[in-house]
Design a protein around this nucleic acid. Structure first.
Length: 293
DNA sequence: AGCCAGGCAAGTG
DNA sequence: CACTTGCATGGC
């Protein structure tokens, strides 16, 4: 296992906020017992049998990695683009977003693996975030291949192939509920080539949005989440219950019953390449500051 | 006990 | 296109 660190200013990345805001379910944190083990405030993710553990101290992101996984850090956290510059571009547009931007430092949009990201959001309808995480972990535990490093066991999310072994009944027994059918049908569509995630990645935002909605269980909102957090489409503006509240209260003139038109209003206002970032700050601020309203 | 949660598909007007 | 309904399950 290789150890090292990369220099990343705190204003460019707050690891805890970024990984725990609820955008990703692919990073595991220590829990009791061996299975989720990392150490303390460390987070890990796995891919193709390899492990990446990271933690933050001052202006450094430390890592331990196997199989060259340390090279994933740049991609996963989109470190090639400057968060400070993005926030500068968003500042001064309106007071509410300004407040959210000032409240949280280093909150980034991630670039997760597409398939795990998709399945996690298929689980999300009418669920609280901690339960989505539990469901996601249950799937990893039941269908994924564990990664063993230095005598410790780490979870790894199943491949499309592996998840195609799951029946709807099995998934319901795992507590997935009515979303079980979403997973079974979607995995089948990916297996038979009806929809290709690789192709979607190369499409522009609008085309990708139409295409990914062909998957059973993927509606407007889930489509936007998966495209934003799993496919790098920064134009996405996921409208969930929190964002809807924010829009009605703070941006009433931008509201539209039509999902795409509402998104277009914000893409025009914030700028196409910055809309996803704006959404994430608004989402986080609403959940922490206006949850009782 | 009842209500609700990062919505969705299917059905109706 | 806009609106309604049913849906699994756990936490409060």
């Amino acid at each position: 296992m290789i150890e090292g660190y990369i220099e990343v200013p705190a204003e460019e990345l707050d690891l805890g906020t970024t990984l725990e805001v609820g955008q990703t379910f692919s990073w595991y944190k220590k829990k009791d017992g061996n299975l989720y083990t990392s150490d303390g405030e460390k987070y890990y993710t796995t891919s193709e049998g390899e492990l990446l553990v990271i933690w933050q101290e001052n202006d450094k992101i430390h890592y331990k990695a196997t199989g060259g996984m340390e090279n994933q850090i740049n991609k996963r956290f989109r470190l090639d683009e400057s968060l400070v510059n993005i926030k500068k571009r968003l500042k001064g547009k309106d007071k509410f977003l300004d407040r959210a931007l000032e409240t949280y430092e280093g909150l980034r949009i991630l670039n997760d693996d597409f398939f795990p990201c998709l399945i996690s959001y298929l689980c999300s309808p009418q669920m609280r975030i901690p339960r989505i995480k539990n469901m996601f972990n249950s799937l990893a535990e039941r269908y994924g291949t564990k990664v063993q490093v230095n005598g410790k066991t780490y979870l790894q999310f199943p491949t499309v192939d592996q998840l195609s072994e799951a029946s709807e009944e099995e998934l319901r027994d795992l507590g997935i509920g009515y979303r079980a059918k979403y997973i079974v049908e979607t995995v089948e569509q990916l297996m038979n080539g009806e929809v290709s995630l690789e192709e979607i990645k190369d499409m522009d935002y609008r085309e990708a949005h139409d295409e990914i909605k062909k998957l059973y269980g993927v509606g407007d909102k889930v489509a936007d989440c998966v495209l934003l957090f799993g496919a790098g489409k920064l134009e996405a503006f996921p409208v969930d219950t929190w964002i809807k509240k924010a829009v009605k209260k703070h941006y009433p003139e931008m509201y539209d019953k039509n999902y795409r038109k509402l998104g277009d209003n914000f893409r025009d206002f914030f700028g196409e390449k910055y809309t996803g970032y704006a959404q994430e700050y608004l989402f986080h601020y609403m959940r922490n500051h206006e949850s009782s309203e």
